[in-house]
Amino acid sequence: MKTKDEAILEIRGTSIGKILDNSTSEEKFQNATLRPILKFQNDLFIEVFKNYATKQKGTFYLLSPEKKLQYIENSIQRDIKFRNSLKGIIIGLFTISEYKEYIQNSSQLNKRMMNLLIERLKNQVQLLESN
């Protein structure tokens, strides 16, 4: 029987992006852990954001395309509860060793994590329209 960590690694897939010998530990973590999780959880992030936007009086849906991009960034950077919820969705798919690595440099990795997620949502803004 597989361990939980083995199962997590299997469903997430392999690293995304190049991991070079001279890559920093943060770059390695980003490409080996964060990117695969963000890709795996993409559909969930879309639905979570749509729910967030709806609960915020739906103003997101009335904005111009440029303002929508700004809204995505501001909501993730400024709404601490929302940001922590998104972080939990990501951290929940860490293996034990990844979590131990994460807590060593959580501040820097949180910035990378949120920046990657912001860019991912901005690149898919058309999927964020209400149904």
Results as ranks from 00 to 15, higher is better:
S23P: 05
G92Y: 02
N74K: 06
A32N: 07
N51W: 05
L34N: 00
N115I: 08
M114N: 09
T33V: 13
Y61L: 03
G88V: 14
I46D: 03
I103D: 01
N42M: 10
K28L: 15
Y102R: 01
A53E: 13
I37Y: 03
Y61T: 01
G17R: 12
T24L: 05
R35W: 01
K81M: 09
T95V: 01
I80S: 09
L116G: 00
I90G: 01
Y71N: 12
M113V: 07
T59F: 11
T24I: 11
K55W: 07
R78G: 09
S97I: 03
I90V: 15
P65A: 11
F40D: 07
D21S: 06
K28I: 15
T95Q: 04
T95Y: 06
L69R: 11
D79R: 04
N22S: 10
M114H: 02
I46Y: 10
I96W: 07
G88C: 13
Q56I: 04
E66F: 05
F29T: 00
I76N: 12
I96C: 05
F49S: 02
T95W: 02
I91L: 13
I46P: 11
Q41M: 15
L86T: 03
F45V: 09
E73L: 03
G88N: 10
S85H: 09
Q41D: 05
N51D: 15
F49N: 00
E119Y: 14
I96D: 08
G88K: 06
Q77K: 13
F94P: 00
L69H: 11
G92S: 08
N115Y: 06
S106F: 07
Q30H: 07
N22I: 10
F82W: 05
Y102Q: 00
